[in-house]
Nucleic acid binder design. Structure first.
Lengths: 342, 342
DNA sequence: ACATCATTTGACAGCGCTGTCAAATTGTTG
DNA sequence: CAACAATTTGACAGCGCTGTCAAATGATGT
């Protein structure tokens, strides 16, 4: 073993491309090529290099690579929640598309706060991501400006708008809220209430869809409504239902802003003996896994969340590979009519 | 506007620390210090620098920083699944601990495959993470070797073992499986079956806990058992239960390897009119949100997943800040006795 | 006023890699 | 087999930042 006294005090001691080059009898440039663009190099050389890489346990330094090539192979993803199953599926779709393409995912949770989101975008940009996926279309002006300035490919995901920052993949929450409410009317319900929690922008748009569906029917849109800023939970769904029905015993159906609330209500009806869907129709939103499993199964708005994730990621890839430039993709939604409505 | 002809062809055109330095009338080193270690710099200077940063819209380049300082402020997290709510909470805990400390999360999904995991670890190491959180203790030999060689702080999370790679935060799945089975015996059930899906290492250990609890009672441990490699779902829980009971109509309680299967079984009992817990006791694992919400509420093993995430992240932080060196933290579990068992 | 010490700032080199372009090698053709 | 084109390889500089250490500045005491 030779002495290591001559190495710089700042050296990390890590195996570098130069070490591989020496061992393989080639120049660092050539090793870099053999690793990054194998087809541009002779078979013999490639084998020698791979051999050396293996023997030395060489791990390329992505920071150096990013610095030299201005490409990080990182995609930043900003969600407002990680525990919400909607975002889990979305992330799954993003992951399964990006990873095989050689990208990595830097993930952050804004906790539904534009302030946190602003800070996270800042941090993310420092990483030189090759693209960004961000939830919704309601970023702060600061954030929007920052993002626009970068000229990076950006996908706003989950909902659509008319003036996206760049690309936009989602569906209309207004239309979805409208459609499920109309569905309830069609099924013969007449006094349809709305119960919403957290009431983030997308919940608000669903609520507006509900309101306009009531207006379409010439009904008072704000009568049977109960919302809260609290986070959704099964228990909250039960509580809010009890509260609203205590005020308006004539309600015959409820549209909940998400499945968790709706399922909580169904469970509560089971306990209290309220007949669903005969006495009370119940509809949710998202079509989470449990929606079709519970009894009675839950009528809800089904959204292609995994697919939406895949599409969002694919938009970035297409742009990064200069293939095509999607502007706006409507992934749509569908009404899953089940047992909780007649 | 002055001509830009002199800039190098490789320049990114990005605002650099040198630009800030010029504007602030200081040297790049000083600007770096003002930004990274503000307390080591005069107030006047700090204000001038911040002003220049704001005016120029300077965004530090983390790749350059990593390269120069050998610190990436990135923690790599490898999970076997993203859609499983257990990992969502875990991730939430990790996130909420690491982000305030100035770290970023690089997340990847191994899909319960050691091969995928091996590739992911490779990719992760290229990013020079400051630490790694990886699920479970059953990595491939290759992966283990690779991880050990890095000398990075590593936390194996979710379950405990005797020879962790480095740090270890979790609980004993064997003990938990044993405890819940014992609980069923104590509640007077005698013919207790086990139903498991996916049967990853941790499910297997829970199963072993079940088996030993049966052996403790002098019972045949493999009689009332049905497992599959298929992924869990509500429907699968129902199907497997029907299958197992068709073979052994004398079963009076079932321990399912997770809550999804157990809940699916409960829903099926509601449909088919089987009385839970009188005719059949049902127990799950994880204590997901819906476990306490459904009717009858689900008896299950409650695990502190969010806390476990926080602890795992805290272990890394403590190590990175040279504070203390945790070796092994048992976060424990508890039996949530609910209505699905008598 | 000066010497002495502590604090703040700056010059410099280098972290490990890749883009550029020129040099070397190989293949092709009359 | 010379003459040329096509392919493969290597030298070099620089991506943007920070660690190191020396220089400048300010504070303190005599």
């Amino acid at each position: 073993m030779s002495k290591q006294n001559l190495i710089s005090s700042r050296s990390s001691g890590r195996v570098t491309i130069a070490d591989v080059a020496k061992k393989a009898g080639a120049s660092p440039s050539t090793v870099s090529r053999a690793l990054q663009k194998p087809q541009q190099v002779t078979e013999k050389l490639r084998i020698r290099v791979n051999q050396a890489v293996k023997e030395l346990g060489y791990i390329p330094n992505q920071a150096a690579r990013s610095l030299a090539s201005a490409e990080s192979k990182i995609i930043s993803v900003i969600f407002p929640s990680l525990s919400n199953a909607v975002f889990s599926s979305l992330l799954d779709g993003i992951h399964d598309t990006l990873i095989p393409a050689g990208y990595k995912i830097l993930l952050a949770n804004s906790h539904y706060s534009v302030t946190e989101e602003e800070a996270l975008v800042e941090t993310m940009l420092e990483q030189n991501p090759d693209g960004i996926i961000i939830t919704g279309v309601d970023q702060s002006d600061n954030t929007k400006q920052r993002l626009k300035n970068t000229k990076l490919p950006i996908v706003q995901v989950m909902e659509l708008c008319d003036d996206p920052l760049d690309m936009n993949v989602g569906f209309s929450h207004f239309d979805a809220g409208h459609a499920i409410t109309e569905h309830l009317f069609k099924r013969g319900y007449n006094k349809i209430g709305f119960i919403g929690a957290r009431m983030d922008k997308r919940s608000q748009r669903r609520f507006q869809g509900y309101r306009y569906a009531l207006l379409d029917q010439g009904k008072e849109p704000d009568k049977y409504v109960l919302t809260t800023l609290a986070n959704s939970s099964f228990q909250l769904g039960a509580d809010l239902m009890n509260q609203l029905i205590a005020q308006h015993s004539d309600i015959d159906a409820l549209f909940f802003s998400n499945d968790d609330l709706a399922a909580g209500a169904i469970f509560e009806c089971q306990r209290s003996g309220v007949q669903v869907p005969r006495q009370l129709g119940i509809a949710g939103f998202n079509d989470l896994d449990f929606a079709s499993a519970i009894t009675p199964s839950l009528t809800t708005v089904s959204i292609p969340r995994y697919e939406m994730g895949k599409q969002a990621a694919q938009c970035l890839l297409d742009r990064l590979q200069q293939r095509k430039h999607h502007q706006r993709i409507d992934v749509g939604f569908s009404i899953a009519a089940r047992e909780s409505t007649r």
